[in-house]
Amino acid sequence: MLTRAQFLRASAAAIAGGTPVATAFTEGSSTMLTRPIPSSGIPLPVVGVGTWRGFDVGADAAARAQRADVLRALFDAGGRVIDSSPMYGSSEDVAGALLTQLQAHDRAFVATKVWTEGREAGIAQMEASIRKLQHPRIELMQIHNLVDWRTHLDTLRAWKHERRIGHLGITHYRDDAHAALESVIRAEAVDSVQLNYSIDDRASEARLLPLAADRGVAVLVNLPFGGGGLLQRVQGTPLPAWASELGCRSWAQVLLKYVIAHPSVTCVIPGTSRPEHMRENAAAGAGILPDAGLRRRMVAAFE
């Protein structure tokens, strides 16, 4: 097990040599694996949380208290990444208020998005996100679903230079957008790409994931459960014997470990509104990951 300082030195050496890193450092009781953002070397724990639907609870005090427990579970497990968007209803407001309540802004790596057309509209939307998230700096600002990406990319570069954001990225959630994501990654310098990837949606393995590694682009994975469909398919089905080889106690952990095991993946961001599910998801980011042979067996089990 590495200390944070040792991990950062190892990450820097790996980045210089063009080698992906996946390891763990000790911070309290956390043993969650981390991988560095190639452009900055900042290590990200491999499991975060998405706020779509789950954090869109408005002013409901009881619901907010439960989401605060989700964030506590994330941090207790060594996680940091919280992903949101202006299109997620009240999710930015809720996440920002809870981070302030928990005094956890410095522990979090907050990612959100710009999702509108036009330079001025984009700036206004991002400034609103900063207010809602209650912190003057966003660690990762992403162009949601590539909406008016050329316009917003110029703004994001300026904001990164001014240190208003730490990193800039692009996102999409559908296979038919992969060619567009690939085109942007080949043509432009971006720090991250967020894309759909799961054991039954492996289209990104062919070109996008290798390209991200070649271009030094971090990968955030949305829809690791296929939008929830995968968990419904396996509900009530006993875990296969090989799940114990990975220390998996649930299908959710099996599905997450498949995604995390791809060396191009930096962080997976499953959404949840329940702290027990956050703890379960986070546990998939620790311990043994499947090798190539076991990943093939995992795919066969689903097919």
Rank of each mutant, 00 (worst) to 15 (best):
Gly169Met: 02
His178Ala: 11
Ala203Gly: 06
Arg186Glu: 14
Ala203Arg: 08
Arg186Trp: 00
Glu182Thr: 14
Leu168Phe: 05
Ser183Thr: 09
Gly166Lys: 01
Val184Met: 07
Glu182Pro: 00
Ile199Thr: 06
Ser192Tyr: 05
Glu162Asp: 15
Ile165Cys: 04
Ala187Gly: 03
Gly169Ser: 09
Ala177Phe: 03
Thr171Ser: 15
Tyr197Trp: 07
Arg202Asp: 14
Arg174Asp: 15
Arg202Pro: 14
Leu168Lys: 01
Arg174Tyr: 11
Ala177Thr: 05
Ala203Phe: 05
Gly166Thr: 05
Arg174Ile: 05
Ala180Asn: 06
Thr171Gly: 10
Tyr197Leu: 11
Ala187Phe: 01
Leu195Arg: 00
Arg186Pro: 06
Val184Asn: 07
Ala177Ile: 00
Gln194Val: 13
Gln194Arg: 05
Gly166Glu: 07
Arg164Lys: 12
Tyr197Ala: 06
Tyr173Val: 06
Ile185Met: 14
Gly169Trp: 02
Leu195Tyr: 01
Arg186Ala: 10
Ile170Phe: 03
Val193Ile: 13
Val184Gly: 08
Gly166Ser: 08
Ser183Arg: 13
Ser198Lys: 00
Ile170Val: 13
Asp201Thr: 12
Glu182Met: 06
Glu162Gln: 13
Val193Leu: 11
Ile170Glu: 10
Asp201Glu: 15
Arg186Asn: 05
Leu181Phe: 05
Glu188Asn: 02
Asp200Glu: 14
Thr171Gln: 04
His178Gly: 02
His161Leu: 12
Ser183Asn: 07
Leu168Cys: 08
Glu182Phe: 00
Ala177His: 10
Asp200Arg: 12
Ala179Arg: 08
Ser198Gly: 09
Glu182Ser: 11
Leu181Asp: 09
Arg163His: 11
Glu182Lys: 05
Tyr197Glu: 10
Asn196Gly: 14
Leu168Gly: 05
Glu162Asn: 10
Asn196Thr: 13
Val184Ala: 06
Ala189Trp: 00
Arg174Gln: 14
His161Thr: 14
Ala203Lys: 04
Ser198Asp: 12
His161Glu: 15
Val190Arg: 07
His178Asp: 15
Arg186Cys: 10
